[in-house]
């Protein structure tokens, strides 16, 4: 059974130019112990989608439709009280994107743990502190930093504090929004290994959001490729890595050079804007057909993978 199921999620922003759909009819699921890497370029709706999973969508954004089912409970429907008390941080937690400024500059690190703990029913401060010390050990930070202020920590250290904070109640699912972007390679690797270890030890499910395909592949058991707010391809990482189906995934995988392998096949994805009528990738797609311009492809299931592209329409299962 799936731990989390997202069904037909659509989120819009109200702008001066009218309604803008940032996430369109998105459906996917994650099972216990899985790591899904959500990959997509800037503006593809990753953060908006992630926030919806922890009910953090606020005006001007609005959830137009969809369900977010955690163990069968629709998180978008239950009362705020029940959500904060029974689900948030206890079952599902979040590591925010722009982490360099996500900690309160006038609070010590320990106070962040205490605030979070007490908000979800952990009364005993000593107990919170004990947990914090253990979690810091897990992310390899000295416990002395509990008495530090955020500005006294490096970017990588802050990032690890945020990961430790997300683990306070050992949730079943953690959503991490670009947790290693803008960090040094060595720090990235270090943090990714901590995440891996966590996943292996506690079977914590992780939704890992990134725009770096290499990092997505490094961590994931499954890949969710987004473009223009829509799902392009969703499936097993190994399979997609070897045999990507969607033209966007194919172009993406061959656009990023690696340290090994043939460089002669490396080719940039054509630059271009998002098509708001039919398939969003239409303007940049090497395989585009006339039908793609004004018609939205359905989600086709090919060998267990989900693909939204007319190329696979004929093979529809």
């Amino acid at each position: 059974m799936s731990l989390l199921e997202v069904e037909d999620l659509t989120i819009s922003y109200k702008t001066t130019k009218g309604k803008f759909l940032a996430v369109k009819h998105l459906s996917f699921d994650i099972k216990k112990g899985e790591i899904i890497s959500v990959i997509g370029e800037s503006g593809s709706g990753k953060t908006t989608m992630a926030k919806a999973l922890v009910r953090a969508i606020k005006p001007p954004a609005n959830i137009d439709s969809g369900k977010v089912l955690l163990n069968g409970n629709n998180l978008l429907e239950i009362s705020q009280n029940k959500f904060v008390h029974d689900f948030l941080w206890v079952k599902v937690s979040y590591v925010p994107q722009s982490s360099q400024n996500s900690l309160n500059p006038t609070q010590k690190i320990i106070e962040h743990f205490i605030d979070t703990g007490t908000s979800h029913g952990l009364r005993d401060k000593k107990e919170i502190e004990d947990r914090a010390v253990k979690l810091l050990q897990l992310v390899r930070l000295p416990k002395s930093i509990l008495q530090s202020y955020p500005h006294q920590l490096s970017g990588g250290m802050k990032q690890r504090v945020l990961i430790a904070l997300s683990l306070l109640f050992e949730p079943e699912l953690i959503i991490m929004d670009e947790p290693v972007t803008a960090l040094d390679i060595a720090t990235q690797r270090h943090i990714l290994n901590i995440i891996k270890e966590l996943n292996e030890k506690n079977r914590t499910s992780i939704i890992f959001i990134t725009h770096e395909i290499n990092l997505a592949i490094y961590l994931a058991t499954k890949l969710l490729v987004m473009y223009g707010g829509e799902l392009m391809e969703f499936g097993d990482r190994e399979k997609i890595e070897k045999n990507p189906l969607h033209p966007y995934t194919i172009s993406l995988l061959s656009s990023v050079p690696k340290l090994f392998g043939d460089l002669s096949k490396i080719k940039p994805v054509t630059e271009g804007k998002i098509n708001s009528k039919g398939c969003p990738f239409f303007y940049r797609c090497p395989n585009a057909m006339s039908i793609c311009e004004n018609n939205e492809p359905e989600t086709y299931t090919i060998e267990g993978d989900k693909v939204r592209c007319f190329l696979y329409g004929a093979n529809k299962a």
């Binding site: 725009h211 993406l252 940039p268």
Partner: peptide, 11 residues
């Protein structure tokens, strides 16, 4: 820049 277009600029 987005990873998908980086090598285009390098080219």
């Amino acid at each position: 820049l987005d990873a998908s277009i980086r090598v285009g600029i390098v080219d």
